[in-house]
Computed example of a mutant assay.
Amino acid sequence: MQSFHFAKIQLLLNKPHESTGTKHIKQSGTSSKGNTWSLAQRHASYASILRQSRKHAEEIVSIGLGLKNDSARIHSVQPLYTAGQVLGMRESTIKTTAAGEGNSPDEVDAMRGCVLNLLQSIQRETGWATEYRMQQLLEEWGLPNGQD
């Protein structure tokens, strides 16, 4: 299931934007309002992709917490790394709507900590190298020394 959620994140992030497939035809004397994408629509589309990606990333971490089989844990390194990349952006995960979507900074920190702990335990218990992924995540998060 981690591979499924990993694939969903990859597909979401590489999905062509709908506005690129829309013809922008403006005929004289007519409105092209229905044929163009506004900035607000584009922003809503990007926000939806981020929200969906975050949900898949949370699923990857949740599944990782329950894995016991060493071979399954080794195969979870790349999905966990990708989840860490998605969850690493605090600004994009803070609650921004009245509906309560998103996560608090503390929840984001907890998820990031889970990713690091899972990667560290995979290396410690299986011998599979994950240190380079942990370092990449820490650098992307702006925490090169491992301090949050």
Rank of each mutant, 00 (worst) to 15 (best):
G127I: 00
Q27H: 14
H5F: 12
A129N: 04
Q85N: 09
S31H: 03
L65I: 04
W141T: 02
E125S: 11
E107V: 01
T36I: 15
A98W: 13
T82S: 07
Y46R: 04
D109I: 06
N145W: 05
D109P: 01
K8Y: 12
K33F: 07
L67E: 06
S71Y: 15
E139V: 11
K68L: 05
G102M: 05
Q52D: 12
S92I: 10
L11G: 08
G66L: 03
E58I: 11
G64Q: 02
Q123R: 11
T96S: 13
R54W: 02
T30V: 04
F6K: 08
W37P: 07
G102C: 01
G66I: 00
C114R: 13
N117G: 15
L80V: 01
S92Y: 11
T20R: 03
R51S: 10
Q52T: 10
T97D: 15
Y46F: 13
L138N: 11
Q78P: 04
T36P: 00
P16D: 04
K15A: 13
L143M: 15
S3V: 11
T30L: 06
Q123I: 00
E131K: 08
Q136W: 12
D148S: 09
S71V: 14
E58H: 00
T126S: 10
N14W: 11
G84A: 06
Q41D: 11
T93R: 10
G127R: 00
D148H: 12
A99M: 07
W37S: 14
Q136K: 14
V61F: 01
Y81L: 14
K8P: 01
G100A: 02
V108E: 03
N69V: 10
R133K: 15
K33E: 08
N103L: 15
Q78D: 14
I25Q: 04
I63Q: 06
M89W: 11
T93F: 06
S19K: 01
P105M: 13
E18P: 14
N145S: 12
R133E: 11
L87S: 05
N69T: 09
I94F: 09
E125L: 13
F6T: 08
I74C: 06
G127M: 04
C114N: 15
L138H: 04
M134I: 12
K55G: 07
E59L: 08
Q78H: 10
Q123N: 12
N69Y: 10
D70F: 04
R112N: 01
E91F: 00
L13D: 02
A40F: 03
M134V: 05
Q10R: 09
R51K: 13
Q52C: 10
N69W: 08
G29S: 01
